[in-house]
């Protein structure tokens, strides 16, 4: 059993590290995104070895599923970005990895020097449902309910913010056709209102509420 776990760990570690290095080394952003998929799936395997089954599933679904698709769309939309060869700081291309190596050494010294109890063991014996969706859901909805609600509000704000950032710039005063404006539009002089406002969404609905309905 133990040998199997070690083989799985090193396979996952090599996949995760290789994916990470490919992300920063490939020059085409599209290939970098694909390398991120390799990294994320390998990391999900490591999560499974650590008995975080729900987290591994969420990693694959949320990251490799949703976020990477978003990256692929943006990389295709923006197109190939030409990375210039000039450097604002001389020798940045060589100093950067050097600083990263220093960071790794420092973190390793910090980890190995803590002498935390349990670092050199495999961890305590854990119950069979450790990290299962049921256990995580119970914790989330009972002990960490406030964190759960805060996460939902954060996601909502991020979605609204992305629409505001990337959407078309709103015309001054046009707050979008509200529910109060729509019946008026459907019943009355639709074409006249459109010509007055001069702003028509692609599906034909006026994007600005008329002054008398607002």
């Amino acid at each position: 059993m133990r040998g199997v776990e070690e083989v799985a760990f090193f396979a996952g570690a090599i996949g995760a590290l290789g994916g990470a290095i490919a992300v920063i080394a490939l020059r085409n952003p599209f290939y970098s995104v694909l390398a991120l998929v390799v990294h994320l799936v390998s990391l999900a395997g490591l999560f499974l070895i650590l008995h975080a089954e729900f987290l591994a599933a969420a990693q694959v679904v949320v990251y490799a599923g949703a976020i990477v698709v978003l990256y692929v769309f943006v990389a295709a939309y923006v197109g190939g970005i030409e990375e210039p060869l000039w450097e604002p700081i001389p020798g940045q291309r060589f100093i950067g990895p050097l600083l990263a190596a220093a960071l790794f050494v420092e973190l390793s010294i910090a980890v190995l020097g803590t002498a935390l109890a349990g670092l050199d063991t495999e961890g305590p014996t854990i119950p069979l449902d450790f990290g299962s969706p049921a256990a995580i859901g119970e914790l989330f909805l009972e002990r960490f309910l406030i964190a759960f609600e805060a996460a939902s509000i954060l996601l909502l704000i991020a979605a609204v913010g992305a629409v505001v950032l990337a959407g078309k710039r709103a015309a001054p005063g046009g707050a979008g056709g509200g529910p109060a404006g729509d019946p008026h539009e459907a019943a009355g002089d639709r074409g006249e209102t459109q010509s007055q406002l001069g702003r028509v969404a692609p599906d034909g609905a006026p994007t600005g509420a008329p002054p008398e309905a607002a």
């Binding site: 290095i21 920063i24 291309r93 950067g96 990895p97 600083l99 990263a100 190596a101 960071l103 790794f104």
Partner: peptide, 9 residues
Amino acid sequence: ATGAAGVLI
């Protein structure tokens, strides 16, 4: 550290 190197270069 790999990610930090990527941000730097």
